[in-house]
Design a protein around this nucleic acid. Structure first.
Lengths: 200, 200
DNA sequence: CGGTAGGGATAGGGTTCT
DNA sequence: TAGAACCCTATCCCTACC
């Protein structure tokens, strides 16, 4: 029963890193289709790429996925109130942008699904790091250089990785605003509703 | 990275089952519009409902969509599968649909009474816009064209305008993580702290 | 053009092998 | 016990079709 576990070669790993850098994390099929990397990774599936990338990330940051899960469990609070003065991790895609935009703006952001204290099940907590924090850690890990990573590279990395989220968030909010009547959609195009009253 | 996957809660699943029982399978938009279920399912789209129902069907009759497809293609079991608990495929695709519309799918379906708990406020918040919402509104306003603005232009606009925010946020979090000891800054470059793995 | 059905891709938990 | 490679499937995304 020799399930020949095919270990990743340095060339493959390099191609994967380059592929992620070019197309972004989560674009596994795209990376495979790219002739620049596809030849090197021809014996790997998109799921293989995803798994390997996860291993690379998690190993660098936590040592292992097991440690990561243990670290996440620690954050389980007994009280239902949030005391985090900084950003707190949430589970909706909206939060990504909310955090990204509202860091020091000091404003309250009301997502479409506000966290009601008693009814929502304990969805997996992220830990004590914000999404941006995790992106930064990911960036420093992936762009690993002998002497560390400079701030500009980190910024560029986070910007690139935010794009897929932005697409989803904007699409979602466009639907929401259209449904709520703020926008009017006609023939694939959006316009401000006549009813919309500018807040400022 | 984060949690792009919004897991279905038991309340939502119950509402979906009830909705299908009342309006029939395939009437996703109708179910969403029904005030009886719309509140519970307010964060779901009609496509989400379709997908979830497909999943429910398939898990009830087969082990997975994969097994279902295999069974549909040829009435032979695929091969030696470790996880497949259902030894004999007892139903065909036809039977699945019959179950879905007529009888219960082997589960208890809430009749026509609203879900017990009041997990959500009766009225949605109006006039609360996220920062992305405001960006969208700004985009539609600024890119105003005779016939409105298409989604792709809106997305590009928001992406471009997000960058200045990202710069502020990343800078802020870099300081924070350095101060907290997660990162170590040496000569304008950041590295993961050796304490990071065990820190908690 | 909106809604639906279906194929396919991804994320994350779980499992096996070393 | 840990780490790397691999499996399973709920959820999400894209496209054709009406």
């Amino acid at each position: 029963m020799g399930a020949p576990k095919q270990k990743w070669t340095p060339e493959e790993e390099l191609a994967l890193r380059a592929g992620v850098k070019k197309h972004g994390s989560g674009k596994w099929r795209t990376i495979l289709s790219d002739t620049e990397f596809g030849s090197v990774l021809k014996s790997r599936s998109n799921v293989d790429l995803k798994d390997k990338w996860r291993n690379l990330l998690v190993t660098a940051s936590f040592g292992s996925r097991r440690n990561l899960k243990a670290a996440q469990k620690k954050t389980l609070p007994s009280s239902s109130s949030k005391q985090n003065g900084d950003n707190d991790a949430n589970t909706t895609a909206m939060t990504v942008v909310a955090e990204a935009n509202g860091d020091d703006a000091g404003q309250q952001i009301v997502p479409t699904s506000p966290p009601s204290g008693s009814c929502d099940p304990p969805t997996a907590l992220q830990g004590s790091y914000t999404r941006v924090d995790n992106m930064i850690i990911e960036a420093v890990t992936n762009l690993d250089k002998p002497f560390g990573t400079d701030g500009k590279s980190i910024l560029r990395y986070t910007e690139e990785n935010l794009q897929p989220y932005m697409k989803r968030v904007v699409t979602s909010r466009l639907k929401h605003l259209t449904k709520a009547g703020t926008l009017v959609k006609i023939k694939h195009r959006y316009r401000i509703s006549p009813d919309y009253k500018s807040a400022g």
